[in-house]
Amino acid sequence: MNPSLLPSKFWLLLVSLFLIFSTKYVFGNSFLSCSYRPSCGSIQEIGYPFWGLGRPESCGYPDPGFELHCNRGVLEIRIKDATYGVLEINNSSEILTVSRIDYGDGICPTPLINSTFQNSPFQDNGSSIPIWLYYDCPTVPENLTLTPLVSNPFECSTSDRNTTGYYVKGDFRGTPIGDYLGLCADSVILPLSITEVGLFEGNRPDPEALEEAARLGFDLVWSANDTWCHECLNEGGECGHILGTGDLICYNSTSSPGTSSFYLRYVC
């Protein structure tokens, strides 16, 4: 045997052993990390598809929209441009109940941000209805009569002036009322639960009732290949994904590549 080959074989063996043991450590550690079920406020035992609060991103579904934060005991999630308080997580029905954080103290927040769920993992499940809020509206023309549906004014006060706004249920675009509302400086679409919309209709058509309905929140459904991950969890594993590829992965306490306890599912 050529003695000059011994050092290279020795280093090759060391590198191979390092890769084997470090890989087993990484995947075993992933199981421990993903086993962690944090809590925030009244929301307990938070797991897949969500991450954050000490759960690594690889322990959630491969979409940044599932990241959670705990802010002074309030569980929060950011969907597109708006931040929501999480009121309930129902994993069995895959429903997230949320309310707008910025509308928790009134209906005149700054800045004004629309609720939108386009190209996000969360969608309306048909249990909410959009409410249009118009801000800083001009004086109503004398030749225009507002219908009862648009006769719900509210005041927003700033350091230098007070402005008038309106909240309406329905889209008045293409009508004289819609033309008038289009002259308002800003508008926001705010989803509310259908069951709570009645709070500010009928007996209580006032801004305080609208604020109460906004605090009670509305439901969103999510889609995160939960069926496959439920199978992983039922087998004692922890579901997550490979960072960079998005492949779903099932870990258990002895997971390592090449064993039956470690398996992937490609995420389209």
Rank of each mutant, 00 (worst) to 15 (best):
I189V: 15
L243C: 05
E231W: 13
R55M: 12
G85Q: 09
S223A: 05
S253D: 05
S187V: 14
A214T: 02
Y48R: 02
I113H: 05
E235K: 15
K9Y: 15
G178H: 06
L75N: 03
S255K: 02
P148N: 11
E88P: 04
L216S: 10
S16K: 10
K80W: 13
Q44R: 09
S193V: 08
L17F: 14
I113G: 03
F200M: 02
V221Q: 04
L233W: 14
D105N: 13
P62I: 07
F154R: 00
C70K: 06
N119F: 15
T254Y: 15
P111G: 02
G65P: 08
L190A: 01
Y135T: 01
L17M: 12
F172T: 03
P191Q: 02
S253W: 14
L243A: 06
I95L: 09
G170D: 05
D206Q: 13
L216W: 07
N252G: 05
G202M: 06
V150C: 07
L183Q: 14
D124Q: 09
I89P: 00
K80P: 04
E238R: 11
D136H: 10
N119Q: 14
T158E: 11
R161N: 14
R204Q: 11
L112P: 01
S39T: 14
P38G: 05
A224E: 00
I131T: 05
S255R: 02
T163D: 08
G41K: 02
Q123P: 03
R100Q: 05
L5S: 11
P109N: 01
I89A: 01
L12K: 15
P148H: 10
